[in-house]
């Protein structure tokens, strides 16, 4: 995973709440077996609507999504994170996120910045008043800087540290392989196994 320290880009005001992962990318777009190419499915139902924010010149090249409450609820599909990243997004700012979406983002390197509803309102207003103007999201200092104003955001310490260092989770866990083996040695015999296949009678 690439390190994330700070990012400067265009904020996109997505004035909607409850954008679930089916809206971020509908199921019919989930059939690829790669991690790339999902940008076509991003917000698919809205992409043909000329009024949709990403269809407007000022925001087409946006990289920071400013979302409404309960963004990324629903399905566990990490494709929702990849679709945002494949499109070019580096960060999503919002007030509340689906748990699995937030965790997937942390693993895939998409920054999820949690702020208060007032901050979302101000960022929406700022983006709409200054279309296409860049802002800065700094993970080091956990701040969002519009040039006119600075806001703090929250992110848990562990995810922040992993993003800053670009850590590979699996590699970190495998450093504790001995502990895993020790745990396995103590698992009770009645715990089920999937193979060898026992035949039903």
């Amino acid at each position: 995973m690439d390190k994330f320290t700070n990012h400067v880009g265009i904020p996109v005001p997505l004035r909607r709440g409850n954008v679930d992962t089916d809206q971020i990318i509908p199921a019919v777009y989930l059939k690829r077996i790669t991690r790339t190419g999902f940008e076509d499915g991003l917000f698919a139902a809205w992409r043909n609507d000329p009024d949709f924010v990403l269809n407007q010149d000022a925001w087409r090249n946006g990289t920071i999504l400013v979302a409404g409450p309960d963004f990324g609820t629903g399905s566990s599909r990490e494709h929702a994170v990849w679709a945002l990243q494949n499109y070019g997004f580096k960060a999503v700012i919002g007030t509340r996120f689906g748990d699995i979406f937030r965790s997937n983002s942390g693993k895939a390197g998409l920054l999820i910045a949690t702020v208060t509803p007032e901050v979302v309102d101000k960022l929406w207003e700022h983006a709409e008043a200054n279309p296409g103007q860049e802002i800065e999201v700094c993970l080091e200092s956990r701040t969002i800087d519009t040039g006119a104003e600075r806001f703090e955001f929250s992110i848990d310490d562990h995810t922040r540290m992993r993003l800053l260092e670009g850590l590979d989770d699996i590699g970190s866990t495998l450093q504790h392989e001995q502990l895993i083996s020790d745990y396995e040695a103590g698992r009770p015999a009645y715990k089920p196994a999937t193979i060898p296949v026992k035949v039903a009678d």
Binding site: S76, E78, H79, V81, N104, D156, T173, I180
Partner: peptide, 20 residues
């Protein structure tokens, strides 16, 4: 509980998951 694809890979490789 449900997990994403990066976590699927993590469980396949380690049979564990870091969880708060």
């Amino acid at each position: 509980f449900g997990i994403g694809t990066s976590e699927v890979e993590h469980v396949l490789a380690t049979q564990t998951l870091p969880q708060a």
